[in-house]
Design a protein around this nucleic acid. Structure first.
Lengths: 227, 227
DNA sequence: AAGGACGTTTCAATAAGTGAAATACAGGAC
DNA sequence: GTCCTGTATTTCACTTATTGAAACGTCCTT
């Protein structure tokens, strides 16, 4: 892990995160939220603005700019794990009709959705790519935290999301969990026995994905820790 | 437009762009490409790494990190224009079977794809979100440059992309082009007359989208210029 | 009216950032 | 084997880039 760092850059990146997280934020709130003085925050936000990473509304609040969309999409497009997982997600959707997800551990110790395939039964239409996943109370979180047992999957019924059963399985080249495959079903549509059967299916797809991961870079997780 | 700026932050953001653009880059190439000394580039890349924006492979090269994916996806998810355009894109795909796109002008004077709906006939499966569009030789580029005439659309047959006909129409609240709706068809599947008919269809959808744009923030384009 | 919050500008102070130089390592050519 | 080139990394003297407190203007609430 890198040691030396550049304070000014860190501050600007934290501000960028605040803007993207909030969607729209005033200078005062951005400064307060990041612990910077108003003049420092203003200057850093102006830099982010002049480089396209944030933009400013007519009412003065800051919003994400196109540049961060662009770089994020480029980064996602270059993520081999996403394309490697597409067949598995497609098959899961095809076999279950439910929405399937690929998630990875994030830098801050949580998880992040990286890809999704919507189920034919799905009532969700918003993209979940980029969203954080809490480690507690979610099947994905448990899997990323290493809690998948000998079954090779985790079932969480009515966890942080009410009325939903989530089933997840780890992708673990070299023994370290670098990703999770998961499927989400409304609980009214699945019994405990069916959830276990789905778990086996998801685990099999995770194994298949693992078999397609070449040794080398993909053995690392996206936070940069080597396998 | 913002005046004052922070050199150190600008440099780091340029480096981030270089990493995301290249997908994988060595320190030496990143330093060379940005005109920084190797030690400066190293320190800035280390900051980007420690904050999750880039990660480092076992072979030492730098790649985009999860944080930029995350923020980019958050930013995209909060872009109202994208959700407002979804019905138009869906209808175009439904009526034509071809892939439909939403694009916006970018900070560097080109265009960027912001949303796409894949056609049922489509042979493309990669996401185009975040990709740049040259202004020359593309229907979208012409539209974003203001070249749509009284027809309200532009047709480019076999432009920068061989064997493809692209049709685009502007979305122009307050008279300024803030986005383009476009459809792409393999040229073998469409005559010039059909392309004009498709153009009228795309122009109608752009008009419909325009009618759904509330006055205010969406009147600005994503580079931050007010309408 | 007063008070508070916001956004913006100014500028003295300093420490944060810089890059040249040195070093170690790897790979290729001879 | 030696030599050369290129890479990544560390060091540190130097300076300038960055900071934040203070001042100011605007707006809103009481």
């Amino acid at each position: 892990m890198a040691e030396s760092s550049t304070r000014t850059v860190e501050r600007a990146l934290v501000l960028l995160g605040a803007v993207c997280g909030a969607g729209s934020i005033t200078l005062a709130d951005a400064a307060r939220g990041t612990g910077l003085s108003a003049s420092t925050a203003l200057r850093l936000l102006r830099t982010l603005e002049s480089t396209g990473f944030v933009r400013r509304d007519g009412d003065g609040s800051y919003r994400p700019g196109l540049r961060v969309v662009q770089l994020g999409a480029q980064a996602l497009g270059q993520e081999s794990l996403v394309s490697l997982a597409e067949p598995a997600l497609e098959r899961l959707v095809g076999q279950t009709g439910e929405s399937a997800y690929l998630s990875v551990p994030s830098h801050d110790g949580q998880g992040v959705y990286l890809a999704m395939r919507e189920g034919t039964h799905s009532v969700r239409h918003a993209s979940w790519v980029g969203r954080s996943i809490p480690l507690d109370g979610t099947a994905v979180g448990a899997v990323l935290a290493g809690a998948a047992g000998p079954d090779g999957f985790v079932v969480v019924r009515d966890g942080v999301e009410a009325d939903v059963t989530a089933v997840a399985a780890p992708v673990s080249p070299g023994g370290r969990v670098v990703a999770a495959i998961s499927v989400v079903v409304p609980s009214y549509r699945i019994t405990a026995t069916e959830a276990r059967r789905l778990g086996a299916l998801v685990a099999r797809e995770a194994e298949d994905l693992l078999a397609h991961i070449p040794a080398g870079p993909l053995g690392q997780d996206l936070t940069g820790e080597p396998a």
